[in-house]
Design a binder for these strands. Sequence first.
RNA 1: UCGGGGUUCGUCUAAGGGCAGGACAUCAGUUUUUGGUACUGAUUAUAGAGGUUCGAAUCCUCUACCCCGAACCA
Length: 762
Amino acid sequence: MTSKPSDFIRDIIDADLASGKHTEVKTRFPPEPNGYLHIGHAKSICLNFGLAKQYGGQCNLRFDDTNPAKEDQEYVDSICADVRWLGFDYGSEALFASDYFETFYSIALKLIREGKAYVCSLNEEEIREYRGSLKEAGTASPHRSRTVDENLDLFARMRVGEFKDGAHVLRAKIDMGASNMKMRDPLLYRIRHQSHHRTGDTWCLYPMYDFAHPLEDALEGITHSICTLEFENNRPLYDWVVANSALPGKPEQTEFARLGLDYSVMSKRKLFQLVEQERVSGWDDPRMLTVSGMRRRGYRPEAIVRFCDLIGVSKNNSTVDMGKLEYVVRDDLNPIAPRVMAVLRPIKLVINNYEAGKSEALTVPFFPPDIGKPGEREVHFGRELYIESTDFEEEPSKGFRRMAPGRWIRLRYGYCVRCDEVIKNDDGEVVEVRCSYDDSTLGGTSPEGEKVWGIIHWVNAADSLPAEIRIYDRLFSAAAPDAGGNFLDYLNSDSLETLEAWVEPCLAGGDVGPQVQFERQGYFVPDSVDSRPDALVFNRIVGLKDSWSKKAVAEPSTPAEKPKSARSATRPKSRSKAEIRGAARYRDATLASRFIRYQDVGLSEGDADVLTGSLTWGDRLEALNAAGMPWDLAAKWLLNEHPREGDDPIEFASDVSEFLVVTTASGTLITTTSGSKLWGQLAREPGSAKALIKSQGLEQVSDDASIQPIIDKVIADNASKASAYRGGKDTLMGFFIGQVMRASKGKANAEKVKELLLAALA
RNA sequence: UCGGGGUUCGUCUAAGGGCAGGACAUCAGUUUUUGGUACUGAUUAUAGAGGUUCGAAUCCUCUACCCCGAACCA
């Protein structure tokens, strides 16, 4: 685990640092204090703070507290505590957007003076109507043309509380026809006569996220503002605000995919519902994937951070396997959790030939040899013990390696015993097993001539402690509870099982743990709220990997069922590029006639189609042809190699005839690899093909005498790969050609190289 | 007048014209006084179709599917 994480965001930062765009990295984690942090936030925290740490920068914890209606100090406190618990340092104190309210206001004033913002007095519903729809442009608000003075006056009166909520809003004057609806004169300020958890009643005017957030970033000198995918549409607006704020900071927003985990819900709204409807005991219910819930469950921050490293960062909409979280939790706990014994579902085991009242003290280690850690405690062996009811089967199933009538098994760290008799209750359930022991088996020797079927854990009936054990399972029974319908319908009714168990006495003092492993069961931690020295309560953090019960139950693995999208069906279908080109030809006779003509001169319908979506393509094509390039060749190079600006090929920077050298000479003067490179250069900046070939040494090398030595060297340098190739791994040919091409700086004739390589590796 | 993102083993994620790699999961084996751990091995992927190229997951075209956007939420 020495490899540094790498992802597209780090690539962007590396490039920014390399280009000198930035000399330092400053990020921020900007929660709204309206709920508790969950594991999805942890991903963002690890990313933002991790970036700051990796690049020697800084990461601010900043509360985006622009909506007093939902926010509360309770959340501020819990968020601060959670971030610190996760192990991240946000400096001396957290920052608050509300501290910048006065600055925001003055920037709004500036926008008004510059005619870039106006007070709109439409009501909420009217604003929505005027905004238009996904397929139709919006229409201008009747107040869009208010004078600067009028706006200034109204805005000032909005601030002093002259108007009721909703009477007026401040809007940016951008573009009501923008296809990105976020740019259709977005709201900047709304009136809210509501006290704010920090500013009290100082304001009745509150900024919107889209206005406040970029300003917060700019004010703090954030270089890389990282947020989740759903804000992609907001980015142009973010840039607009930064550009028009005249603030020196120039933050840039980059979006990544939020975390999705199967068998869980992640939205704050839904978590809030679970808490409010008391489906769980609170935000810190150990079944909740909130940071506080995971903490109470017994997860350590190291495991959560490790999980975030493991899942990576990308723009893919993804759902991570819950098993991955469980894996990191186990992996984190395995080397640090002392082993003790606890019997969760007890039945009594009585050893008939063991002296009543006798007790033997056994000193046993806290860790198995492979962990290699010191530490030991005493357990007492006696005539009456408890064992796990699941460790006994009267009629053992196939593969069962535990206790059954007549079988010898070892009691961990103790003696081997043989089950002689079974005692059942009225319901026919086994409540007690009677055994005999072999007093020569304590150190590890087996009873003379007998097979020992397995090792099971136990506790001494005389001095073990009662404890309540809470076994947690995933909160939802469906892989994608929020796929459709009400997610509450998919709550797992068995997500909490409470057991009355017996545990080793050493657990009472609190000297071990807090996280411990109950051998053969899982990892457990005393519940931080309910456990007391005289009334122990343990939470199961996570079970041990169990390859037996899985086999025994043969549970059909339930794959995460693909949620059927209801949303996409309601979205209007937009035209494809092909349809748009067709429409363009329908409107423009030149395009239409070109489409026919290009096919007449031998181009495929598909190529002709693309080349006649706009005049630009055809213009370039005609120019190449006029300079002497055959139609098909011109189309091929134009379509495949010519640099573009959006959907259209860029203007030729060089004389068109220069391109002839690239194409017609292909195969003789230069290789296609060099040709592609050269084409791009000529297209972008003026130049002479012949001069460039000369200056860059692009002349093709195709004589055996020049190539053979390179091939020999490459084969000699990669002897093991050569033999692998000869052994049948022929995908390696690409590797060899690549090596030779690289060694020749792309100048070798690839066909020739292949031919010679084939011969050399035969 | 719709726009913006996305699609690589079952899952997550690398490779950005040249060996499709890693992790989790699964299966098999070795070690083990935990059916744990550790170790070894195995299985499995470039959404589909066409094109460019000696060579395409990667470049071009088309198609399909998924996600996001019409809060005075963030």
